Simulated scan of single mutants.
Amino acid sequence: MTVRANAQPEQLVLDLPHRQAQGAQDFLVSSSNAAAVELVDSWPHWPRPTALVVGPAGVGKSHLANVWRLRSEAALVAAQSLAETAVPVFEQRRALVVEDVDRGIGNEQVLFHLMNLAREKSGSLLLTSRVAPGELSIALPDLRSRLRATAPVAIEPPDDGLLRSVLVKLFSDLQLAVEPHVVSYLALHMDRSMEVAVQVVAACDRLSLAMQRKVTRAVAAAALAAVAPQSDDGPDVGEDDTV
């Protein structure tokens, strides 16, 4: 699909594959996230019952995990909150997302047990982390060994093409016509994060309305100054699906 922004005097056209993220905003695909998208799309035909998606904050790990959650009818739990209550939930659904294992695991024995259950009962576990398995701080030797044997699928920071396309789409969703040089300016100066892109475009919208003018480079600069370059990369899920 061609992503277009009604920019004047020239029209900005960026060609990137496009897929609908189930139950969420459109998810744009590029070389930076293609492997992780393929992992989600290939379920339930995974080569191993446990998959690990690795990438820095703000690259869309939670977004893709949510796509898989909706597709597989999985439950979700933050790794820090992992407890024995997750076991019967997994046994019922045979699918579970465990978010942010790099931030600490509430019960390492439970995660090890879940990984064994996934293998024994043909279930699926999707783990997310900001760091590779070898960099995780794991006390339980068996779990540490099992995680290090899990081949990670990486999501890299968005490349130029993907970041520009995301900005164009976000502006288009708000029915804002933004010239190509403004999009280029934002892509060059903003933090390379999907969450920051959302925040920056929202700030541009607010400033544009307050100033009663279109989104110019000056408005874009003010929006960048107003947005803190940080993201919690938190999941966007419903309460009923959280363990």
Rank of each mutant, 00 (worst) to 15 (best):
Q175I: 04
R148N: 15
G161N: 12
M1H: 13
Q25W: 09
R93T: 09
P47V: 06
V131P: 01
Q199N: 14
A21N: 15
P17Y: 01
Q212G: 09
A95E: 07
K121L: 14
P47S: 13
E10K: 03
A151H: 12
P229F: 03
E239Q: 12
S137A: 15
M115W: 00
S208P: 04
A151I: 12
D159E: 01
A228C: 08
V237R: 09
A220N: 03
V89S: 10
I155L: 09
Q230D: 13
A24D: 14
Q25F: 10
A51G: 08
P17Q: 05
T85K: 12
G106E: 01
A65S: 10
D100C: 03
G161L: 11
H45G: 05
V13F: 10
V183A: 02
V131D: 04
S129G: 01
P180S: 05
A149Y: 02
I138L: 01
L163R: 09
V13A: 04
S124A: 15
Q11C: 02
D160W: 07
P56W: 01
Q230G: 09
S31F: 03
K61W: 00
A202N: 14
L14C: 13
V196P: 01
V97G: 06
V219Y: 06
L163E: 03
K214D: 14
P157F: 10
L209P: 00
T128C: 06
D205H: 12
T50W: 05
H63D: 10
D173A: 13
Q230T: 13
V54M: 00
R144N: 08
Q212N: 13
D233G: 15
A86R: 11
R19M: 15
Q25M: 15
A221D: 14
L16Q: 00
R48F: 14
E73T: 10
P49D: 12
P229E: 02
M194K: 07
V29Y: 09
P152L: 04
A35C: 11
I138R: 03
G60Y: 00
L167Y: 04
D41Q: 13
V166I: 09
E120N: 15
Y185V: 08
L12S: 13
A34Y: 05
V237I: 06
K61V: 07
S184I: 00
L162M: 13
A74T: 15
P141M: 05
S137W: 11
V110T: 05
P180D: 05
G234E: 12
A95F: 05
V29G: 04
N66A: 13
G58P: 01
D15Q: 07
V89W: 06
P152H: 08
M1R: 11
L186C: 07
D159M: 05
L167D: 08
E239G: 04
P180T: 03
Q8R: 13
D159T: 06
A65D: 07
L28R: 07
V37A: 12
V101S: 10
L224G: 03
P235G: 04
V243A: 12
A154K: 08
A222P: 06
L136F: 00
Q25D: 15
P17F: 07
V3C: 06
P157I: 09
D102N: 12
P180H: 03
I105S: 04
I138Y: 07
P44D: 11
M1A: 15
E99M: 03
P180K: 07
W68D: 08
